[in-house]
């Protein structure tokens, strides 16, 4: 047996599984972060407002709409429909989030990013950990990247519709 030829085929066989993990992981990220915020939309609006990037009225709407979009995106990824498109939207959203954190960092704001919390201003000597927040979001961006590149996954509606096993 020629090992050189066997390895690529093994990897080819593994990709749908790797992509499936990426898809479910990304789904969990959006479901959790949306779920944590959806219970208090006013707090979510205040978290958006803390970035000081838009008017309060706009921040309120963004804060209210965002958790629902996150949950919807999480569900789309969970069932695996139009996986490449869903992953592309997830990537765009993550890039916007990273941009927001970078901008807050650059302006020296001391806020909780609100990624997996209600966010807001940090008090009591807690300092913002923007580097970690960005690193985490970049990690999620990698998951989205895997799906953009190899959107074929197991247990997906896409696969079902196309008659794949």
């Amino acid at each position: 047996m020629d090992l050189k030829q066997q390895q690529p085929t093994r990897l080819t066989a593994a990709w749908p599984w790797i992509s499936t993990l990426a898809r479910l992981g990304l789904a969990a990220v959006f479901l959790i972060s949306g779920g944590l915020k959806v219970t208090d939309l006013a707090a979510s609006g205040r978290a958006v407002n803390a970035y000081d990037l838009m008017s309060w009225e706009t921040a309120k709407v963004v804060g209210a709409v965002q958790p629902f979009l996150e949950i919807a995106l999480g569900l789309l990824l969970l069932i695996g429909i139009a996986t490449r498109l869903s992953a592309a939207i997830a990537a765009v959203v993550l890039v916007i989030f990273i941009g927001g954190i970078v901008s807050a960092w650059a302006r020296g704001l001391q806020i909780d990013c609100g990624c997996f919390s209600k966010g807001g201003e940090l008090t009591g000597g807690r300092t913002a950990q923007y580097g970690l927040d960005i690193a985490r979001d970049v990690g999620f961006l990698v998951l989205a990247g895997i799906l953009l590149w190899k959107p074929r996954t197991r247990f997906s509606l896409d696969g079902l519709l196309l008659g794949e096993r």
């Binding site: 939309l41 209210a64 949950i71 789309l76 429909i81 939207i89």
Partner: peptide
């Protein structure tokens, strides 16, 4: 599926908007 994805996102956004208006 593309149509479905955008429809789901629009509906979700609309729900958020509606809940906010109600609050």
């Amino acid at each position: 599926t593309t149509v479905a994805v955008f429809a789901v996102l629009i509906v979700a956004g609309g729900i958020g908007w509606g809940v906010l208006a109600n609050q």
